[in-house]
Design a protein around this nucleic acid. Structure first.
Lengths: 195, 195
DNA sequence: AACGTAACATACCCAGGGTATGCGAACGAG
DNA sequence: CTCGTTCGCATACCCTGGGTATGTTACGTT
């Protein structure tokens, strides 16, 4: 195995193991030396690849965020009508809360560990961007009321973040459908009335 | 000073100082011994009053949550129409994000430090309860579409949490008004259409 | 072949949360 | 009034765990 391959392999192993543990135990309860040991290296190796524990966490968050964005986009692309695309993307996001990786890492720990500004910037690069683009398109098409897109994006993004967290804790099998319906009702409010 | 008074005074002092520091520096960067020293006692005293650093934090969160609930309720009570009460409460919450105490402690650190379940339980006891009650009233009055209140509460609560965080970082003086308008639009969606 | 460097390992520092114990002043019992 | 008890802390200590400084080995380059 060449050196570049070795480096990539170790880095990837640390990322995977970190991801598993961050999702299962939360950032605080994960000890970096254990992550390294589980991968067959020592703490020194971890610090050779990442600048700190938070650095590893940041890399994991970016990875998970990216995948989440893909999931949302894929769900949206299954539709052709822009309005249906928005709804499909939102519904996909709601369902994603059941994934402990998304739930614990992205929604719960990331804002506190990385700070809200950085978290939001990363969010913007992945899932929230799709939402903003969808809303922008709908505004330009005159399908939703003309308004600044950013406040609306934040409101909807936050609504879905929290709802996803709640859904993951709910034992009620109806909860997901009910939340989707409630969200649909809310979305109707921003639809432009045409006489 | 009697012993009970002394105890209460020390506890209150720790609470106040903790609150200041948690708001300014975030949970992680606050060191318990420094909080105690600033109050004129040692770490031992802090552990005599609270079971842990998280315990002090929990007490602070409860305090801030309670005050926030009061603020929202007061804003709502300024109106008589139930719909106006809902809007006023929501707007008050949005503005509360500018308070670093609310922002950093309640919205950012609390979910990660105390866990989402406990955070939500505390939220339910204070501000979110007002929202749920308002929505329940509106459903019963037939003003908004008949539906389970809980999903809607989570959606709106999350929307406002995130928007409040965003508003606190925004330099645009228009942002608050724009967010209020966007929220109003969303709320229109859940209003029952009457022919 | 020899040298430089990358990819780690080892050994260490130390901040900070948590605990075990000591101590003096307040409080209640007799 | 005093004597024992308890309460409200202080002191001293433990130890986990993040971070760093310094080897060590093997690959790659000339």
């Amino acid at each position: 195995m060449t050196r570049a391959e070795q480096r990539a392999a170790t880095r990837q192993a640390l990322l995977s193991e970190g991801r598993r543990r961050f999702a299962a135990d939360g950032y605080h309860d994960v000890v970096l030396a254990d992550v390294a040991q589980a991968v067959g290296v020592t703490k020194g190796a971890a610090y050779h690849h990442f600048e700190s524990k938070a650095g590893l966490f940041r890399a994991v968050v970016a990875e998970v965020q990216h995948e989440l964005g893909e999931r949302v986009a894929t769900a949206a692309d299954a539709h052709t009508d822009p309005w249906d695309q928005l709804r499909a993307g939102c519904h996909a996001f709601l369902a994603a809360g059941h994934d402990p990786t998304v739930r614990r890492i992205v929604l719960l720990d990331a804002p506190a560990v990385l700070g809200w500004d950085e978290w939001r910037a990363m969010d913007e690069d992945s899932s929230a961007r799709h939402l903003a683009e969808a809303l922008t398109g709908l505004v330009e098409a005159g399908i939703i009321v003309d308004q600044p897109v950013e406040p609306l994006t934040r409101l909807l993004s936050g609504a879905m973040n929290e709802a996803a967290l709640w859904l993951a804790r709910s034992s009620d099998p109806e909860a997901l459908v009910q939340t989707e319906q409630a969200l649909d009702h809310l979305l109707v409010g921003i639809k432009a009335r045409r006489p």
